[in-house]
C-alpha cells in the first residue's frame, strides 16, 4: 500500500502544480512510480490510480493539451480541488462529528474523511440521540450531485421508465423522496420515493435544466394527511383515557370538548380519510367516532367484515 500511496501523492503533486493538461505519456515519463515495464501494466496502474482519486473527490478531467486539439491531457483545476474553508471552530467540528456519527443512512454513517477534510475533531464522546435516515448514502449523494449540477435523472418507477429534472430531495416519515417534474411537465413537481426507484442513472452528457427560483422542497413533499388541508373535515372523537394523551399528541388541531371518568371527547381535523382510518384502527376499540356520520360509515367499511 505504501508504494501506491507514494505514487498517487506524486501524481497529485505534479497535476496540482504543472498548470497545464499533461498527457498520460508525459506522466509515465515524469512522475515517480509509473515506470511499469509494459504499456499495458502502466495503463492498468494509471487507470486504477485515477479511479481512486475520483472516489476521493479529486476533480481530474481530460482536456485538449493545445489549441490545435490534437492531444488529450489530464488536468486538476486547483479551484475545484480545494474546499472553501468554512472557518469552523474546534467546538463546531466536534459537534458536527458527533452528529455525523449519530446519524446513519441504512446503518452506515458519513465517512470520517468528511470531518478530516474540515480539520478533524478533538472529542469523541457519543450522543444520547441518534437517527437512521435510511437509504444508501452513495445513491443519495449521486442524486444530490445531479440536483446541484442540474443534470437529468433516469429511472424506472411503478413499472414505467421516467426522465426527470431533479429539483430537490426531502426526507419525511422515514422515507427519502426525489422532488422532480418529469421532462415536459415542468409545472408538476412529483415526489418519487427513492426505495421504489430502480435502474437509476444520471444523464451526464445531456444539457443542464433550469430550476425555478421559487421551488420549495417542503411544499413538494407528500403530507399523507398529517397537516390541515383546505378541505379538512372536523370530526368529534371519543378516546378512552388509556390512549387519550397519545391520541391528542398525534392529532391535528385538537380541542378537548368533554371529559368524564372514562373518556375524553375531542374535536380534531381530518384531511385524509384513508390515513385517518389507519390511525383510528391503531386505537382498537378504545376510540369512537361520534360525528360526522359519513366518517363512521367510511371507517366501518374500511374495517370490513360487516356483510
Amino acid at each position: 500500500m505504501q508504494k501506491v500511496i507514494e505514487r498517487i501523492l506524486n501524481l497529485l503533486a505534479f497535476l496540482l502544480t504543472v498548470g497545464r493538461p499533461v498527457t498520460a505519456d508525459e506522466i509515465r515519463h515524469t512522475v515517480k512510480g509509473y515506470d511499469q515495464p509494459s504499456d499495458e501494466a502502466f495503463r492498468r496502474t494509471f487507470e486504477r490510480d485515477k479511479d481512486l482519486l475520483r472516489t476521493l473527490g479529486v476533480p481530474i478531467s481530460l482536456t485538449h493539451t493545445d489549441v490545435w486539439e490534437v492531444e488529450l491531457g489530464y488536468i486538476i483545476p486547483t479551484d475545484d480541488y480545494q474546499i472553501t474553508d468554512p472557518g469552523l471552530t474546534d467546538e463546531e467540528r466536534s459537534a458536527l462529528m458527533i452528529a455525523a456519527q449519530a446519524v446513519r443512512f441504512g446503518g452506515q454513517s458519513t465517512e470520517a474523511a468528511a470531518i478530516f477534510k474540515l480539520g478533524g475533531a478533538t472529542t469523541n464522546s457519543g450522543a444520547a440521540v441518534a437517527a437512521d435516515l435510511g437509504h444508501d448514502l452513495e445513491v443519495l449523494g449521486e442524486l444530490f450531485e445531479a440536483i446541484t449540477d442540474r443534470r437529468r435523472v433516469l429511472f424506472t418507477y411503478k413499472d414505467r421508465p421516467r426522465t426527470v429534472e431533479p429539483y430537490g430531495l426531502g426526507h419525511r416519515f422515514g422515507h427519502w423522496y426525489l422532488l422532480a417534474p418529469e421532462v415536459g411537465q415542468a409545472d408538476t413537481v412529483k415526489a418519487f420515493r427513492l426505495d421504489r426507484m430502480s435502474q437509476l442513472k444520471v444523464d451526464e452528457a445531456g444539457s443542464m435544466f433550469a430550476r425555478p427560483n421559487d421551488f420549495d422542497p417542503a411544499t413538494s413533499l407528500p403530507d399523507m394527511g398529517r397537516s390541515r388541508g383546505d378541505d379538512a373535515i372536523t370530526a368529534q372523537i371519543r378516546f378512552n383515557l388509556d390512549v387519550a394523551e397519545i391520541a391528542m399528541e398525534q392529532a391535528a388541531d385538537v380541542v378537548e370538548i368533554d371529559r368524564d371518568s372514562e373518556s375524553v371527547t375531542v374535536e380534531l381535523s381530518v384531511s385524509s380519510v384513508p390515513h385517518f382510518n389507519g390511525w383510528m384502527l391503531g386505537f382498537d376499540d378504545k376510540s369512537l367516532i361520534e360525528s360526522p356520520r359519513f366518517l363512521v360509515d367510511a371507517y366501518l367499511a374500511y374495517i370490513g367484515g360487516g356483510e
Binding site: D80, I83, A100, E111
Partner: peptide, 12 residues
C-alpha cells in the same frame, strides 16, 4: 484540503 464529495456533503 480536498473538497467534500457529494455523499460527504449531504451526509454532514
Amino acid at each position: 484540503p480536498l473538497r467534500l464529495t457529494a455523499p460527504q456533503a449531504l451526509g454532514l
